[in-house]
Structures are given as C-alpha cells and as structure tokens.
C-alpha cells in the first residue's frame, strides 16, 4: 500500500469510529441495542459511499463493498430458497418424518389416475432425484447425467412459451391492429364538416384520433418490414424499413425520457438516507 492509501484508510477508520460513537449516543436515548444499531447504520452509510466512490474510479473501498455484497447476497438467496422451497414446500410433501423434524405440518396428497394412485411422496422424489443428477456435474464422469434435469426444464418451458407467446404476442397483437381508420366508437365519424374542427393533439378530436389510427397502422407495418430478414431492404421495401427504424427510435427515445425521472428519484432516495437517517442533517 502506498503512503496516501494508508493515510486515506486511517481517515476512513477514524471517521467510521466517530460516526459510530456519535450515532450510538443519539440512538441510546431511544433504543436498548443502540450500539449495535449505530454500528449497522454506520456500516450502511459507509457502504453507500463506497459504492459511489466507483464513479470516481475503481478503488479498494468499492472492491470491498462489491465482494461483501456478492457473498452476502449469494448466501441470502440460498437461505431463502432453502427455508421456503425445501423446508416450506418440498419436505412436508416428501415425508412425514422430515416434515415433523423441521416442525412443518405434513402435507400429504397425490393424484389418482384411476389405475394408479401417485402420492406426493412418489411425485416429489422425482425432482429430488433430478436435482441430485444436476449435482453430478461436479463429478468428472457423470456430468452428462446433469442434462436430464436441464432437458426437463428447457423442454417444459419451451412448450409453455411456444403457446403462450403465440397467443399473447401474436394473435392478440394482430387483432389489436384492427383499428378503425375511418372513425368508429368512441370517435365516431361526424361528417366532413367537423373534420378539422377540433385539432388538438390530445387525441380527442376527430382528425387527430383518425390520424393516430393511421400512424399506428403505418408504424406497425413499417416496423414489421424493418424486421424482415429474408428480403433485401431496397426500393420501396427499403424505404418502409427506414420509416420503421425511425418510428422505433422515437419509441426508444420516449421510453428513455420516461425512465429518467424515475431514476433521479432513486438518487434522491439514497441522499435522503445519507443526510437524514445517518447524519441527521435534515428531518
């Protein structure tokens, strides 16, 4: 470590200690475990600052926060998965003994096929065996067995996605392009006289409502043309594809702009934590 790094480290340690003590004094009025709480709040504040320091450049404090974050979060999800899925849902169905051991109510059940009664015990041992096969990856010889559970997962979800998206992203979307280009409920055709009378972009006027429908129709059309892979984008087709990409870009811009404000409020949230919960400068 260079000399500067040591000095910076010393300053950080001192600041941490001062903050801890000061926070503990403040919290001791309201809480019994003030020292522990003060420590935790100070840790939270320093980790927040450590992450922000990354904006300047990569540094040991960011590295520390990053590595701690990775370890703690991985364990968090493991514990969560273990207690909810394994202990909460799997074991109570698998065996009465195990359910009792983990103090969970036993959930027997099954499905009667008529000629064969499959109990939960049988049905839920299957994923356990498949899960164990997955762990065979770790053995140099049995790695190929781990493809069986993967095949189950990928096959099942591929089948599921195939029909689901065909419905939601294809049939439903196609039917919603059937917009009335000539005026219908709720923007009824009111005759040519009233056509331009309410020209305002809030899409309540007749002209604007119809224009919107036309823009949507042409936009969808050109957008789809842009996504044609097996035809050269030249001539009329090429021009439609150009229009398509313009419409896409306008959309992406709008979506970008829409997100900006939300992201700024996240920053405000963090600053509130630093200045209110930690430093107590604002209330």
């Amino acid at each position: 470590m260079s000399r500067t790094a040591v000095i910076v480290f010393a300053i950080v340690v001192v600041l941490f200690a001062v903050s801890w003590v000061a926070k503990a004094v403040v919290l001791s009025d309201t809480s019994d475990s003030g020292t522990l709480d003060a420590f935790l709040v100070t840790v939270a504040a320093f980790l927040t600052l450590a992450i922000y320091s990354f904006l300047y450049k990569d540094n040991p404090y960011y590295k520390f926060a990053e590595h701690l974050f990775v370890g703690v979060s991985a364990a968090f999800w493991m514990c969560q998965g273990f207690w909810t899925t394994i202990v909460g849902n799997l074991l109570p169905r698998l065996s009465e003994g195990m359910a009792n051991w983990f103090m969970q109510p036993y959930q027997p059940g099954g499905y009667d096929l008529g000629f064969l009664n499959l109990s939960y015990t049988v049905l839920y041992w299957i994923p356990v065996i498949l899960g164990l096969l997955l762990l065979m990856r770790l053995s140099p010889k049995g790695g190929w067995l781990s493809r069986w559970p993967l095949a189950l997962i990928i096959g099942t979800t591929a089948g599921l996605n195939f029909v689901r998206y065909l419905r939601s992203d294809f049939i439903v979307q196609v039917s919603s392009t059937f917009v009335p280009l000539l005026g219908q409920e709720p923007h009824q055709w009111q005759g040519i006289g009233a056509f331009f009378s309410n020209f305002s972009l809030d899409a309540s006027g007749q002209f604007v409502a119809l224009l919107a429908n036309w823009v949507i129709f042409i936009g969808v059309f050109c957008g789809l043309v842009y996504f044609f892979f097996s035809k050269e984008h030249t001539g009329l087709f090429g021009r439609a594809s150009r229009v398509g990409i313009w419409v896409l870009m306008i959309t992406f811009g709008a979506s970008f702009g829409y997100t900006v404000m939300g992201r700024i409020s996240l920053l405000v949230g963090r600053l509130t934590f630093l200045f209110e919960d930690w430093l107590g400068l604002i209330t």
Partner: peptide, 20 residues
C-alpha cells in the same frame, strides 16, 4: 402524451410481434 400513445404504441406492437 401523443408520442407515448401513438408512435410508441405502433413501434411497441411491431417489436412485440417480432419478439413473439
């Protein structure tokens, strides 16, 4: 609002159909 409701809607639909 018009941008969000009209061209945005059109492009979203084209993308969604493509992705689907």
């Amino acid at each position: 609002n018009w941008l969000m409701n009209v061209p945005n809607m059109a492009a979203q639909r084209a993308i969604v159909i493509g992705i689907g």
